[in-house]
Design a protein around this nucleic acid. Structure first.
Length: 814
RNA sequence: GCCGGGAUGGUGGAAUUGGUAGACAUAGCGGACUUAAAAUCCGCUUCUCUGAACAAGAGAGUGCCGGUUCGAGUCCGGCUCCCGGCACCA
């Protein structure tokens, strides 16, 4: 008889739903918040997505059977550019397109048998959700963490919008369909003050034991904490001073020039009305027009300002340049030039024939400025540095910093690479920024009771023109001032979709509350996330930082009980097909709905799980599908051939004949349990396969055999739940295995009665000894030496020593 | 350049703390069943060599070179290559 996956899977999905097995408890006693990262709805989900959901589902089902009250929700990150681009291309409204995709994908997820609490499904593009995204914005605004400023920002000419720093990859747009080279534009935009939390975000990483090391490393890298020293340089004859940041204050006697970023606000003042003004103006104009990539690729250059800065330590006057290798957004946008000890300064100095002065010598050697071919950047011993001469780098840094602090000319300081998060987007399909501009009252936040600020639905023109399409929608943009009631305008921009996804994990906890984003009771009940799945290292410096940032802010504001969102994060490898990441744009997807129709949900699940360990990327292959199908048929056949017995309990009598099988069963229970805890699903399934093979070759179909069948079915249930429940019920089991406690192994029968002692000669395996129970060391040695195969290698040689590992191994050294 | 991860049969991948390398699957080959094929079940399959041999045996083998150890895929030192992240960050 063949297994009919369509009817069976439908039957059990209906059963689970009717019994409400995946509805999270309202008052959990032993809570487990199991979260898979939600997704962007772009058509039907494919096997690449499914991997996340299947792995999350296996874990959820396992935890349920271990007695946890599991919360396992799902939702959609539904705002974003693809919907809008689709609208431009074929004219469908983004909302219609998005909701239709969600409908199809939900169906696929259900057909895969993923056990979500569907009552809590969230869709970020619906007003009942984005109302609270806007509320978050207002909270940040109140806390001084949302602010608007004019700045040079990343502009994507492809998407016609600004982007956050995190969305620029190698100078290009992060979106896979775009990859346009990013330009700089000076615009007035909204930012979240994430830099305020740089230290807390960094420090928190040390406590995240359950996070992957690589993700933590990437975040540390991204935050980029740098310890050093500020030094104040006054501009000679002018009332201007520059505070520069350096990690090497020990090289301050080697300063021979100073460079200012072209974007620096003081540049104008430095040269105004001087003969240098035209050249500098021209340079600044050219530099600010360049993309970041162009600036990096070209040789370092600059232009003199005619001004001089005074070195606070030795009183020397050094020329000030404007140079575009200086980043405006890091430190103070001004650097001191130490050509002898910094590669960039060295290049710059050689180009403009600026003096090079050695102030650090390598230990036990002396450098000369003339013969220097590259900067010496290593630590060393200070020279030509007044009273600091002869100090080493570490001592020098401390001494110079201390002295500067005493004289109030700077002192120790810390800088971060992390920049504030630019959240404005000049696009339609996002949550409108709830701010109103009034001629009289200025910038006014929309009062909470007026939320949500709804997106106008009748919009038809989504073509980006360098400003938000909303700016052209009169009914939307024109409004009244919440303060004075006069005429006012709304902010035409929408928020970065990463804002929506920064707090979604909280909405699941109270998905239908229209008074609060989530009650404190619900937050207390479920937080933190116990297991976050599918974060993916591609999100390490985006979503995974943002959602930690939101958590810390909401914690400080008193809304939630934790300052870190997730205890454990598990990264998954991607699914490849034909060697490339499965993606719609590449056209190499295996759509989930269609595959399930054809092969069944359990086959899809087993194929994904067995192919590779979850954290590794896997190649989707038809051979894998064959294997999964074969396994299921094999199990189905063996159970139906031995019908009505698979519900068997623990056998009452173990005899010499069936003891080995019973031990194998118990070992399998232990192994699968252990592997489930540690996400080693591929080896768990391999263990089941092994047990199934062992059952096939078992002649005696006694109660140990039947218990073996039951064990396979039982242990299979998180992986292939439909088949498992079907076989469970065929064998007389009640309801679903989800309603049964997880199988325990019998401690008395996990060790084989007989063991193999390996006999080595000089570390090479020569023979084996089958031993029942334990054998004294002397006996083992005697038997080993009697062994013919061992003897061959020992005979005629002197035995130097014998190493004996009890019950395991004997190594004879000759 | 810096940080993180990786390299094991034809293929995907196994191997708690150093203790039988290659579990399990897949592909291939052989056998059983069948009129036949498919399906199914059973077996074999790291490489090289000795051997008439289905006997039996020897040697080599986890990216490369070296080390520690009775014993190394696993530990240490030095490389090569691949993947991911960061990088004009002062």
């Amino acid at each position: 008889m063949q297994y009919d996956h369509r009817a069976t899977e439908r039957k059990w999905q209906d059963y689970w739903r009717e019994r409400g097995l995946f509805k999270a408890a309202r008052h959990p006693k032993k809570k487990f918040y199991n979260l898979v990262m939600f997704a962007y709805p772009s058509g039907d989900i494919h096997m690449g997505h499914c991997k996340n959901y299947v792995i999350g589902d296996v874990y959820a089902r396992y935890k349920m059977r271990r007695g946890y009250d599991v919360l396992h929700p799902f939702g959609w990150d539904a705002f974003g550019l693809p919907a809008e681009n689709q609208a431009i291309k074929i004219g469908t409204h983004p909302e219609k397109w998005t909701l239709e995709n969600i409908r199809i994908s939900d169906e696929s997820l259900k057909s895969l048998g993923i056990g979500y609490d569907w009552d809590r499904e969230i869709i970020t593009c619906l007003p009942e959700y984005y109302k609270w995204t806007q509320w978050m914005f207002l909270l940040f605004y109140k806390m001084g963490l949302a602010y608007k400023r004019e700045a040079y920002v990343n502009w994507c000419p492809g998407c016609q919008t600004v982007l956050a720093n995190e969305q620029v990859i190698d100078g290009s747009c992060y979106r896979s369909n775009c990859h346009a080279v990013i330009e700089k534009r000076k615009l007035n935009q909204w930012f979240f003050r994430i830099t305020e939390y740089a230290e807390r975000l960094l420090e928190g990483l040390d406590r995240l034991d359950g996070w992957p090391e690589n993700v933590k490393a990437m975040q540390r890298n991204w935050i980029g904490r740098s310890e050093g020293c500020d030094i104040v340089f006054k501009v000679a004859g002018r009332d201007i001073e520059f505070k520069v940041f350096t990690t090497r204050p020990d090289t301050v006697y080697g300063v021979t020039f100073m460079s200012v970023a072209p974007e620096h606000p003081a540049v104008e003042e430095l040269v105004k009305g001087t003969r240098f003004e035209p050249d500098v103006r021209q340079y600044v104009q050219a530099a600010t027009k360049r993309t970041e990539r162009e600036r990096i690729e070209k040789d370092k250059d600059g232009v003199a300002t005619g001004c001089h800065a005074v070195n606070p330590l030795n009183g020397e006057r050094v020329p000030i340049f404007v140079a575009d290798y200086v980043l405006p957004e890091y430190g103070s946008g001004v650097v001191m030039g130490v050509p002898a000890h910094d590669a960039r300064d060295f290049q710059f100095a050689r180009r403009y024939n600026l003096p090079v002065r050695v102030v650090i010598n390598p230990p036990g050697a002396a450098l000369s400025a003339e013969s220097l071919t590259e900067a010496y950047e290593e630590p060393g011993i200070m020279v030509a540095s007044d009273e600091f001469t002869a100090l080493d780098t570490a001592a020098g840094i401390a001494a110079v910093s201390r002295m500067l602090a005493e004289r109030e000319l700077g002192g120790p300081s810390v800088h971060y690479r992390l920049k504030d998060w630019l959240i404005s987007r000049q696009r339609y399909w996002g949550a409108p920024i709830p701010i109103v501009y009034c001629d009289i009252c200025g910038m006014v936040p929309v009062p909470e009771q007026d939320l949500p600020v709804e997106l106008p639905n009748e919009t038809t023109d989504f073509i980006p023109k360098g400003r938000s399409p909303l700016a052209a929608v009169r009914d939307f943009i024109n409004t009244t001032c919440p303060k004075c009631g006069g005429m006012a305008m709304r902010d035409p921009d929408t928020m970065d979709t990463f804002v929506c996804s920064s707090w979604y994990f909280l909405r699941y906890l109270d998905a239908h509350n229209d008074k609060e984003f989530c009650t404190r009771e619900n937050a207390d009940r479920w937080l933190p996330i116990d297991q976050y799945i599918g974060g993916g290292s591609e999100h390490a410096t985006g979503h995974l930082i943002y959602f930690r940032f939101f958590t810390k802010v909401l914690f400080e504001a008193g809304y939630i009980p934790v300052d870190e969102p997730a205890l454990h994060v598990f990264d998954l490898g991607m699914v490849l097909k034909d060697g490339e990441v499965m993606s719609k744009s590449k056209g190499n997807t295996v759509p989930a709905g269609q595959f399930v129709q054809e092969h069944g949900a359990d086959v899809a699940r087993l194929t994904i799980l067995f192919a590779a360990p979850p954290e590794r990327e896997m190649e989707w292959s038809d051979e894998g599908v064959t294997g999964a199908e074969r396994f299921m048929q094999r199990l189905y056949r063996l159970v139906t051939e031995n019908h009505d017995k698979a519900g068997a309990g623990v056998p009452s009598r173990i005899t010499g004949d069936n003891e080995a099988l019973y031990i194998k069963i118990n070992q399998t229970v232990a192994k699968v349990t252990h592997d489930l805890e540690s996400f080693k699903y591929n080896t768990a399934i391999a263990a089941l396969w092994e047990l199934l093979n062992a059952l096939y070759v078992t002649e005696r179909r006694d109660d140990v055999f039947h218990y073996g069948l039951r064990a396979v079915i039982d242990l299979l249930s998180p992986f292939a739940p439909h088949l498992a429940d079907e076989l469970w019920s065929l064998g007389g089991g009640q309801g679903s295995l989800l309603e049964q406690a997880w199988l325990e192994h019998d401690e008395r029968y996990t060790e084989s009665r007989s063991r193999t002692i390996v006999i080595q000669v000089n570390g090479r395996v020569r023979s084996h000894l089958e031993v029942v129970g334990t054998m004294p060391e002397g006996e083992v040695k005697k038997m080993a030496l009697d062994d013919e195969r061992v003897n061959r290698h020992v005979a005629g040689k002197i035995i130097k020593k014998m190493i004996y590992v009890p019950d395991k191994l004997l190594n004879i050294v000759v």
